[in-house]
Design a protein around this nucleic acid. Structure first.
Lengths: 146, 146
DNA sequence: TATCTTATTGCAATTCAATATCAAGTAAAA
DNA sequence: TTTTACTTGATATTGAATTGCAATAAGATA
């Protein structure tokens, strides 16, 4: 999807959800669409400030979260969540319940995948480790709320 | 590894690294070894406080980070790092450079694994999505720092 | 176009996780 | 015991993100 298509999606979704297309919101989204990197809210804020000196950081945070809910952005990294620690040093992966947030250790074997070298522009990066996170609803939540 | 073996490891590694076995440190590690859940530093602090009312939260944070460096604990969730956002909505995974921290989108196909149902105590959990994180050193860092 | 409704903004204060500073305390080696 | 270096507790501080609220403005409606 190119920049124009992305912007069109912003327009469409805004109309659909009764959201208003403010200059701030458009600037934020434009900065994100034009970047080839993954940006943090603060990075977007710093960039947007150059054009909108009055812009508030809260506006940037609010809008970016809203764009995630609206399906305009994806995000990565678990903000706010505190680091979790574990004495289990065996090789293992994690299952995270989307409902209650509880983390379960899972033991996987034969983890395989094929890397699309064409689309993934990693060049000669050296890949050491892979961590797999499974998401879903845990048994407890299925029984109690499912 | 059972509790006793874990505790022995704490003793061994402490000696090895010239670290001191303070009551606080042992209490923190004991709480972690006895828990079947992944605990946050604050959760450990709250539990440890019951026995050590004078305990400072800083001590808990310091010790737990130190235990990770010493290989006594594993941790999950990247603390401190700000959330990153992305307009790429195609299904993709991520490669994270351990050296510079930059995140690259990677496109994987045929992601497969086998779940050890015996060891992974998920019961009838419903698994929806899997996210794969690859770690290593990116091409830029390989070129610039060896 | 004027008016109205309600989403949105900017600001400031606040939360929350985590870290830094530093004097005082204490394990453990000598 | 004495010494020394690691640790602690208290406090201040950082950084990311959120919240409350009055003022503002987008977009619908008349």
């Amino acid at each position: 999807m190119n920049k124009e298509e992305k912007l069109q999606k912003l327009v469409d979704i805004s109309r659909e959800k009764g959201l208003k297309l403010t200059p701030q919101r458009m600037a934020i989204f434009r900065i994100l669409s034009e970047s080839d990197k993954h940006l943090t809210a603060d990075e977007v804020y710093q960039k947007a400030r150059k054009d909108y000196p009055m812009l508030s950081a809260a506006t940037v945070y609010r809008n970016m979260e809203q764009m995630v809910s609206s399906g305009l952005l994806s995000n990565l990294g678990r903000s706010g969540a505190a680091m979790k620690y574990d004495t289990n040093l065996e090789e293992h992966h994690h299952f995270i319940c989307s409902h209650c947030g509880k983390v379960y250790d899972v033991y996987l074997s034969k983890v395989t995948y094929e890397l699309d070298m064409e689309k993934s522009r990693l060049g000669d990066a050296k890949i050491d480790v892979s961590e797999l996170y499974l998401y879903g609803v845990c048994e407890d939540c299925l029984n109690n709320y499912g």
